[in-house]
Design a protein around this nucleic acid. Structure first.
Lengths: 145, 145
DNA sequence: CTTCATGCAAACGCTTTGCACCAGC
DNA sequence: GCTGGTGCAAAGCGTTTGCATGAAG
């Protein structure tokens, strides 16, 4: 990605895929994908790493990070930041949504903000801001915690 | 804070203050306070550190962190986390509010979420969550950026 | 004079990266 | 056999902390 071979041969880039990483099907990616399909709650990269190890599928922590990053870029997983660390989760809805997350076990419920996006856009415009983005997450303790 | 003197003398703790740090009036605290009064935008601890240094008032970075932490605990400053780092700002409203923050210069406008708190509480209750807290901030580019 | 804040540097936790090795295709 | 993913360990970055010094009251 940083270095380029001297040859002027154009990289094998088809039209569809924007040369994102994470193309190749590997055992590690499969393991992470499978785990994410299983665990319906937000988890840190380190937790995912531990869970994989517990499950016998040992994957390097760096790979976990790299894969999650790629999946996040491909919008296959949702990422939220909480207290300095990032939490990952495979979400069901592909539409814009927010989360109600248990701050103890990570149990998550997807929620939709009632008109938050429009509200944010309107408010931004009012104050001369453009390119408005919003962060909205709810945290609490679920009934099991 | 971690180590205690062997003497069993009870710490000089009056009834009012819960032994929070930041009691003593020092030059550094004054400088940080003054700067925060001047700068109306969200700033990282390191930016504040730099600004102090530029202004001639050199304060150790650790002190900046410790002081900001104390001020945050005393609710004298607002803290938000964004992209892994925390931003500090002296806010005008002491009531619950949110922010519209320029992601380039940190310029900030205080906003009130229309019923977000109630909405969050209701939603939490619906799903058996308690002790609900919410994080809501807007980010964009201000007209000067 | 006692106590607590400060400063420095080292430690910390999470995340990213360089590089040699290995596996997809 | 190329290409690109993996693993390890080291580096990076923002933040916290231990400890000796210095200032506040």
């Amino acid at each position: 990605m940083t270095t380029r071979s001297g040859a002027p041969a154009q990289p094998s880039e088809r039209s569809g895929a924007p040369a994102q990483p994470g193309t190749r099907r590997t055992k590690q990616r499969a393991a992470i994908s499978a785990l994410l399909a299983d665990v319906d709650d937000f988890r840190t990269a380190q937790q995912i790493h531990d869970l994989l190890r517990e499950g016998g599928e040992s994957v390097g922590l760096a790979t976990v990070y790299r894969t999650l990053q790629a999946m996040a870029a491909a919008e296959e997983v949702d990422v939220i930041r909480h207290e300095g660390e990032q939490l990952f989760r495979r979400c069901h809805s592909s539409e814009h949504h927010h989360h109600l997350v248990c701050r103890s076990c990570g149990h998550t419920i997807e929620i939709t903000g009632p008109g938050v996006t429009e509200w944010a856009a309107r408010l931004g415009q009012q104050h001369g801001f453009r390119d408005i983005d919003h962060e909205l997450e709810l945290f609490g303790l679920c009934d099991k915690c």
